[in-house]
Simulated scan of single mutants.
Amino acid sequence: MTTLEPAPTTTASALTGRIRDAILRGDLAPNQRLIEADLSESYGATRAAVRTALGTLAGEGLIERLPNRGARVRALTVDEAIEIIEVRIGLESLCARKTAERLTAAQADALRALRDEIIDAVAAGDLIEYSRLNQEMDRLLREDSGHATATALLERLRAQTARHQFRLAFHPGRAAQSAPEHIAIIDAVLAQDADAAEAATRAHLEGIAALLRALD
């Protein structure tokens, strides 16, 4: 387990975020046991904060409780990841549509800047930055949609499939294929073409599901 600098004032909320990030990065591996005493020492948090954080992450589907054996990082199967992506298709398509319909000038400026950064990251072969920018694009489209229910559901679903999608980001040739798909989504939103934004989002996510099936 990765040991971090002690932070005795770590709150349950902050601890939840740090453990979540460790799971998504792969620092905490699928099926790895999560022992309260170890987490408390590693993160400089109280046992009560650890229990609260583990309960929150269990609710998000990132960890699972084991009867009389504590908790462990949940290992999401490819079939489960594909099912989640199929659900996300409807929600993310809705968010793209809503964002296109209600786009403000400030939101458009942020998307244009992000579009340029995506192009630069792919040209430079910086896959880590490209992966980060993809997540940023998804976040902007969720938040700019103004659809609170879809946003809340997506934040939970995306966390569960993040490890699989991070792996896909480094698949040979994936960036060259997915970058134009992301640009198409952004361009449709900037044109305030709700139908095109919805269709581009659906096509992109269907491609992710198909690649997961092929790689399984």
Rank of each mutant, 00 (worst) to 15 (best):
M1P: 13
E5A: 14
E5F: 08
T10S: 05
S13K: 13
L15N: 03
I23L: 01
L24T: 13
G26S: 10
A29I: 07
P30R: 04
N31E: 15
E36P: 06
A37K: 06
G44F: 04
T46A: 08
T52A: 12
A53G: 10
G55C: 09
E64Q: 07
E64W: 01
L66S: 00
N68G: 08
A71H: 15
R72N: 08
R74G: 07
R74Y: 09
V87C: 10
R88W: 01
I89C: 11
I89L: 08
G90D: 14
A100F: 05
A110P: 05
R112F: 08
R112I: 02
R115K: 14
D116V: 08
D120V: 06
D126S: 01
Y130I: 01
R132H: 14
T149R: 14
A152L: 05
R163P: 00
R163D: 02
F166K: 09
R167G: 08
G173L: 00
A176Q: 14
H182C: 04
I183G: 12
A188P: 02
Q192D: 13
A194N: 08
A196G: 13
A196V: 01
A196M: 01
R202E: 15
L205W: 13
A209S: 12
R213S: 09
A214M: 07
A214G: 11
D216T: 10
